[in-house]
Simulated assay, not measured.
Amino acid sequence: MIEPITPTTPRPVRRAVLTQWWRDLAILHWPVAPHLVAPLLPPGTTPDTRGGVTYAGLIAFEMDRVGPGFGVPFFGRFPEINVRLYSVDGQGRRGVVFCSLEAARLAPVMVGRALGLNYRWARMRMTRTSSGVWKHSSRRIGGSPGRCRLAVEPHDEVADDDLTHWLTDRWGLHVRRVGRSLYVPNEHPPWRIQTASLLELDETLITAAGLSVDSGAPVSVVYASGVPVRFGMPRPV
């Protein structure tokens, strides 16, 4: 049985092995056929679907205060952009799967790759204006070339629709590491997701990650100012 979508984690993290802040998130999504996503997921997981489709996400934000569970920040604050999919395992745990992750700081890229995540070191710039949040990324090393330039304008209105909850109320990630599929739980307080307008988008990260989505505008564009996050010990799938 697949677990329900809930605003807080159904699996509280008793002992955090990693803590971080996510700040100024621009969250974009496109529908995609599940059979196109399935080959990209770790063994033991399948695409999580809603109304017969699943989704590919492009999430641009600033990572801050990344450190071990006792809260010592050693990676500082840096931009990140990731392409992610939605998964469910045999125990019914919903999660996300990262196809690619761009980060502007080399040290966390190396640590992330050692943990089985497809991090790439990128040249990135993030600037804020009075009406939007701008983000830019272009890869420096490794993998297929990719770029992303986007701008969103957050609104005061809360995004409280079912699709937004389905996409953002996620309490773990599925990853393949050293031949094993793992589930890594996370938790954070309920966060405020706002509606947003997409002002600009020019990206090739989704196709570079091996995905094909409708070339039209994303079906969901939202923004979040940020939230502190705690990750627990990996568990086998």
Rank of each mutant, 00 (worst) to 15 (best):
1 M>V: 13
4 P>R: 00
5 I>N: 02
5 I>A: 00
7 P>M: 09
14 R>I: 02
18 L>M: 03
21 W>C: 11
22 W>P: 04
26 A>C: 14
35 H>L: 03
37 V>P: 10
44 G>D: 06
44 G>K: 07
52 G>H: 00
54 T>A: 10
55 Y>S: 02
57 G>H: 04
62 E>N: 14
62 E>M: 04
64 D>Q: 15
69 G>R: 05
69 G>C: 05
71 G>Q: 00
74 F>D: 14
80 E>P: 03
84 R>T: 12
89 D>P: 05
94 R>T: 07
95 G>V: 01
97 V>S: 10
98 F>R: 02
100 S>V: 10
105 R>E: 13
109 V>F: 05
111 V>Q: 06
112 G>K: 00
115 L>K: 01
119 Y>A: 05
125 R>W: 03
126 M>T: 12
128 R>S: 14
131 S>K: 14
134 W>Y: 11
135 K>L: 04
136 H>C: 12
140 R>W: 15
142 G>P: 05
144 S>G: 09
147 R>D: 12
148 C>K: 09
151 A>R: 14
156 D>C: 09
161 D>E: 01
164 T>H: 14
165 H>I: 01
166 W>Q: 11
167 L>M: 14
170 R>T: 04
172 G>H: 12
178 V>M: 15
180 R>C: 04
180 R>E: 11
184 V>D: 05
185 P>N: 13
186 N>F: 08
186 N>W: 08
189 P>V: 09
197 S>R: 10
200 E>N: 14
204 T>Q: 03
204 T>G: 10
206 I>T: 04
207 T>C: 13
212 S>Y: 00
215 S>W: 04
222 V>L: 10
223 Y>P: 09
225 S>K: 15
233 M>Q: 14
234 P>V: 06
236 P>K: 00
236 P>C: 00
